[in-house]
């Protein structure tokens, strides 16, 4: 069982969350020429890192907020969690 520390609600079990994927992916900016390659990278291509991975989760059965979680994809250890709009240093 994963335990995720929701920045809004505190420590909760993974049952309350749903996964949203790699949080480092940025949508290409609006009102700008977007190349096919940029669009591919946004929609399809993923690094799928082994080790520390910053990812989005939604506290779907709790506060329903999207949050960022820094987790190890090899050990499942969770290091830190952030609010969705928080900058991750």
């Amino acid at each position: 069982m994963l335990y995720i520390n929701c920045p809004h609600c505190g420590m909760r079990s993974q049952n309350e969350f749903s996964y949203g994927g790699d949080a480092s992916v940025k949508r290409p900016e609006l009102n700008k020429e977007v190349s096919d390659q940029e669009w591919d990278n946004f929609v399809y291509n993923r690094k799928s890192l082994r080790g520390k991975h910053l990812e989005l989760w939604q506290h779907i059965s709790g506060c329903r907020q999207w949050i960022k979680v820094e987790r190890d994809t090899a050990t499942h250890e969770i290091f830190r969690t952030f609010k969705a709009d928080e900058e991750v240093a």
Partner: peptide
């Protein structure tokens, strides 16, 4: 969720 651990929850 993304994982390289060959074990689940």
């Amino acid at each position: 969720y993304n994982s390289y651990a060959q074990r689940g929850n």
